[in-house]
Computed example of a mutant assay.
Amino acid sequence: MTFRALVTDQIAGGGVASRVDALGESQLPAGDVLVSVDWAGLNYKDALCISGLGALVKTYPHVAGIDFAGRVVESSDARYHPGQAVVLTGWRVGELSWGGYAQRARVKADWLVPLPKRFSTRTAMMLGTAGLAAMLAVNRLQAEGLKAGDGEVLVTGAGGGVGSIAVLLLARLGYQVAAVTGRPERDEQLTRLGAHRIIARDELLKPSGKVLDKEVWAGAIDSVGGPLLGEVLKKIRHGGTVAAVGAAGGANWDASIIPFILRGISLSGIDTVMQPYEARVAAWDRLTTLFVPTAFEQVLTEAGLEDLPKLAKTMLAGGIAGRVIINPRDPPT
């Protein structure tokens, strides 16, 4: 049979272009499990892959999509059976191997996680890599001893996928959340998700010129990186932890060791790509107890394969808020 896929390929003169094409199952890469994809997500890495940026894709033609959810069609691995709902995030799927921007995907069984029965495949992609990252970040803060009542927890990039989910999860756990965003039009939505107060990104980005500022936040989840992270670290309370999730604002900042040795703060990196199977399962299981799909619909956008090239450009320009999920099944009418 043939199926629809967004195929990205190199073009004459340099660069890449993407188009929706019909492929056959024989064209899919090798793998243990064939999945019928119900939903995929749009992430910053996807936007880079579709645009031919970041040197993430090594061979062309390519099918991007770093996360997806669907049902098993066939499996040579005893852990999975036809009809079973599964979710995939990470393992450089959609970068080094073909991903979820297609009606079919063939992957290694070790890359999949059984979808918790309380989640539909659509709900799984409302979360996707962003939701997994947010849950792992919350888990890290709690493992470091941060408790509700210890003080405000900062979430940067709160208008994006990771940030908005982190706001919701922390609020559900009883934390007071200060949400940082450069999109004032999202203030009301973030408040409805549970933010205690909203901080303008430009306000936090103003460099103080000091190595230490007044202690403000008990902890933070940072999905931005760059100079913003540098300013955040100066304002974390003694013994606090910052969970670093993303680098949309850059990979570098003017750093000082002083906040770490005088206040004993910690900077913890959150990896979603190579996260062990057991940690993924635990995170997805915990998400079923905390995530409220109806509350998140307000920051959700649905799109199709044909929309992806334009959406990728918008995302790279900082114009995407919340989470975008992709329906590969239905062509435009």
Rank of each mutant, 00 (worst) to 15 (best):
A17K: 15
Q27T: 15
P29W: 01
P29L: 00
D32E: 13
V35M: 05
S36I: 01
W39H: 11
A40C: 01
G41V: 11
L42N: 08
K45L: 10
D46T: 01
G54T: 04
L56H: 12
G65F: 13
V72Q: 12
Y80G: 09
Y80P: 12
Y80F: 11
P82R: 03
G90L: 03
W98M: 12
A102Q: 08
L112S: 04
P114C: 00
T123Y: 01
M125A: 04
T129P: 08
A134Q: 02
A134H: 07
L136N: 05
R140G: 12
L141H: 10
A143D: 02
A148T: 03
G149N: 09
A158Y: 04
L170P: 12
Y175A: 01
Q176S: 13
V177L: 09
A179L: 00
A179G: 02
R186I: 08
L190Q: 05
R192W: 06
D202W: 14
E203C: 10
L205F: 01
G209W: 07
K210G: 13
L212D: 09
D213E: 14
D213W: 00
E215H: 05
A220Y: 10
D222N: 07
V224G: 02
G230R: 04
K234M: 02
K235L: 09
G240Q: 09
G246Y: 04
A248Y: 05
N252T: 11
I258H: 14
L267Q: 03
V273D: 10
P276T: 08
A283N: 02
D285W: 02
T288V: 00
F291G: 01
A295M: 13
F296L: 03
Q298H: 12
V299R: 04
G304Q: 10
E306Q: 14
L308N: 06
K310Q: 14
M315T: 08
I320G: 13
I320T: 15
R323Q: 06
I326E: 04
N327T: 08
D330L: 11
P332G: 00
